[in-house]
Simulated scan of single mutants.
Amino acid sequence: MKVRAPGRVNIIGEHTDYNGGFVLPFAINKYVNVEVKASNLYRFISKNMEPTVETKKLTRTNTWADYIIGILNIISETYKIDFVEFVISSDLPAGAGLSSSAALEVATAYAISKLFSLNLTKKEIALIAYRAENEFVGTKCGIMDQYTVALSKKDHALFIDTQIKNYKYIPLQINPYRFYIINSGIKHKLSNSEYNRRREECETALKILKKANFREITFNDLKKLQGIYKKRVQHVLEENDRVLKTINALKAGKSLEIGKYLYDSHKSLKELYEVSCEEIDFIVEYLKQEKIPGARIIGGGFGGSVLVLAGENFPKIFSKLKTVYETRYPYKISLLNITSSNGVEIVGK
């Protein structure tokens, strides 16, 4: 059986999902493919990564296979799972902020559910993948990535209220523009980065304010905070507001407004949440000077990719950017032409 799960791009709502905020992602037409069949042990083969991993115990291996092993651990709490061979292939760049790990987790859980007739819903699969990432892999992420990879619908964004874990489909109306992704060539590794530290800083801010969650915080509460805690909370509050404004702009067909919110989000992620880097800032500033409607860093930060809202002629502008960027920095950048996609699905028996 072969299953594929898409990567995702978050239009806006960055670093809000683990703070009970609003996010507005959509799935993209770049995928992680997982083929499964019965075996005499657990075998994990990747056409993109080394090494091949074989084991008869679902314990940590400190390899890429831990994303799959984490899923198997959680499903096996409730269901009996026999030995399985996994063959993984992907055209989704790892470390580019496009949720390759969530795609692998969700594809694995969906494949196992189908292989063993477990009848798990896609929402249940998303929550299993969320637990695996947090409890087994150790990245304290929110639910956005797993929800988007599992539940998305083509030609729609997914508006998720991560506080109550509800979601709605929002039509992607951005004519005459479209979305592009620039991969900066700088790979990040969330579990070994500042990502978990940002989450801890937000949790500390909640304790200082004596609030149970970010929904209880108002802009007036910023007066009670100082330093990094004030900056982190201010970003989350303003970013939540930008998500709602972006949804209104989508519904009204006001694409240029969406671009403005992208630039505002990047400024906040750079100055308040401090998860950008020199190379990404250079890309965004270059695009702004070229009068591109919108751009911002996406993903966990400290590298990864830039989401761009632009017209059909953007590849020509990117060619100029590529020359300047690669002269200035020791990285190769690439342009991904993306369209929206459905969430996880079976693509072969």
Rank of each mutant, 00 (worst) to 15 (best):
F214P: 06
Y42D: 00
E238W: 12
V34Y: 02
V32I: 13
A205T: 01
N183R: 00
F179M: 13
N134G: 13
P176K: 09
N337G: 12
L309A: 00
Y79Q: 05
I228N: 11
G299H: 09
V23A: 06
P171I: 10
E345G: 12
K114T: 08
L92T: 00
V87H: 14
F214V: 07
G294R: 06
N48I: 03
I258G: 07
V3F: 04
G300P: 03
R198E: 07
V236M: 01
V9F: 08
T148H: 03
S46I: 01
V106I: 13
I68V: 13
T327S: 15
A27L: 03
L256E: 13
N313F: 15
Y169R: 06
L250Q: 04
R8H: 09
K57I: 13
L127Q: 09
E290G: 06
Y180A: 05
V106R: 04
E194C: 11
I247L: 12
A129D: 08
K2L: 15
N313C: 07
T108G: 07
K47D: 12
L244G: 11
L151Q: 02
E133K: 01
L41M: 13
S193M: 01
I12S: 05
D155E: 10
I125P: 04
T63K: 11
G185M: 04
Y67Q: 10
S46E: 08
L41S: 14
P330M: 08
F302T: 08
I11Q: 06
F83M: 08
R43N: 15
K322G: 06
I280T: 05
Y229I: 10
L256S: 02
I208S: 13
L120E: 04
T246W: 04
A109V: 02
A103T: 05
T327W: 12
P6Y: 00
I258F: 12
D281M: 13
Y147N: 04
S305Q: 05
R198T: 06
N73R: 14
L336G: 06
I68W: 07
L237P: 04
S305W: 04
L127Y: 14
R197N: 13
L151W: 05
K223T: 11
L127H: 11
I208T: 15
L118V: 03
S340V: 01
K123N: 11
K291A: 01
I74H: 00
R242G: 10
I28E: 07
E85F: 04
R215T: 02
L269W: 01
S152G: 05
N337R: 12
E345A: 10
N134H: 15
I346L: 14
C141W: 05
N175S: 13
S113R: 00
K251Q: 12
I208Q: 07
F136N: 03
Q226M: 15
S341R: 00
L190I: 00
A129I: 05
H235T: 06
R60G: 11
L104T: 09
F136C: 11
G185Q: 01
